[in-house]
């Protein structure tokens, strides 16, 4: 089959909404885009463990500790499946981590904001996981099979994440005045970054067009963002939280909440490495990875000797 025929078959596959599987032929650019997207997603799950891990030791009740630990564990687990999904495209985890450390691979910018108070743990679950769910539900229909199936598994756990975050916000809004203040402060700091999680507006998004054609992306940034805004504004008002946007208004005709303009300058600053925690997050990940090298080496060396011992047993 000529390259041209292969491309034709690939395009038909996409057109008919069939999944692309690891052994199928795919255009090099599709493979690259998939690797970029899945590894970025995997790194985001893992780097996201840091701001939440920052509160595990200070979680205020045993129940809160257990829930938070279980959530962080889920996120790490998501990282694992996503690394495996990316590996089906011919890259290994070590290489992906190297790219992350060299700044060639990115992770979600949202984790470059600090988790300053306990209410931030509520806000992260409610807003950050809430935004992630909207995106991930849409990705359940993405064209690359292993990624789509990974999303189905992940989405099942994500709704628990959002609920536990909202529950923390509810508890705090029903609490003493200091707790209410903490909750509102967290809302003020996380609202806009959460909206930015969907990426630049449709007109300016560099990857969107091709990704939509290949059905990697199924819905545009702005559509997904609006879906998140509509469900979240009501949840905020329901517990007495103010949305930090003086231009926010409900459009009766369209049935949607309209927000003020997002500060895209801040978005680009954070993406380019100038967010409050970019440096800290990367340093933390690199340190843990380097500190763990002797452990990984030891495990490898041990597995090697075991294998040789087995061989000797057989030949003797």
């Amino acid at each position: 089959m000529t390259e041209e025929d292969k491309l034709k078959r690939f395009n038909i596959c996409i057109e008919q909404d069939e999944k692309i599987e690891p052994k199928d032929w795919m255009p090099e650019q599709y493979r690259k885009t998939m690797i970029r997207q899945i590894s970025q997603h995997a790194h985001s799950e893992v780097i996201g463990m840091q701001p939440e891990g920052n509160w595990v030791l200070r979680a205020p009740t045993l129940r809160a500790k257990k829930i938070l630990l279980a959530k962080i564990q889920d996120e790490g687990g998501h990282g694992l499946y996503l690394y495996s999904a990316a590996e089906t495209l011919g890259i290994d985890r070590g290489e992906m981590i190297k790219q992350l450390h060299e700044g060639k691979a990115k992770y979600s910018s949202i984790f470059n904001y600090p988790a300053l108070t306990w209410a931030d743990i509520g806000a992260i679950g409610w807003l950050v996981d809430g935004a992630a769910i909207v995106n991930q539900v849409s990705l359940q229909r993405t064209s690359y099979g292993p990624y789509a199936r990974g999303m189905v598994r992940i989405c099942k756990e994500e709704s628990f994440h959002q609920r536990q975050g909202y529950e923390i916000m509810v508890t705090m809004m029903n609490g003493i005045s200091e707790q209410k203040k903490m909750a509102q402060d967290a809302m003020d700091r996380w609202w806009w970054p959460a909206l930015m999680m969907f990426g630049p507006p449709d007109g300016e998004s560099v990857h969107t067009k091709q990704s939509m054609q290949w059905k990697i992306k199924r819905e545009s940034n702005d559509v997904l963002r609006q879906r998140f805004i509509d469900k979240t504004v009501d949840q905020a008002h329901f517990i007495g939280l103010e949305v930090p946007d003086k231009d926010l208004k409900f459009n009766e005709a369209t049935g949607h909440w309209e927000t003020g303009t997002i500060n895209w300058k801040e978005f680009h600053e954070v993406i380019n490495g100038n967010g409050p925690c970019n440096h800290q997050r990367m340093k933390h990940h690199i340190k843990a990875h380097n500190d763990g090298k002797w452990v990984r080496d030891a495990a490898l060396a041990f597995a090697e000797t075991e294998k040789n011992d087995q061989k000797q047993l057989i030949t003797n």
Partner: peptide
């Protein structure tokens, strides 16, 4: 729990969180 995000490999990070 202090090991959270500090494990030598992701699998062990998760294992220690689990023990915790």
């Amino acid at each position: 729990a202090e090991w959270c995000s500090n494990g030598p490999i992701l699998e062990e990070d998760l294992a220690m969180t689990n023990l915790s």
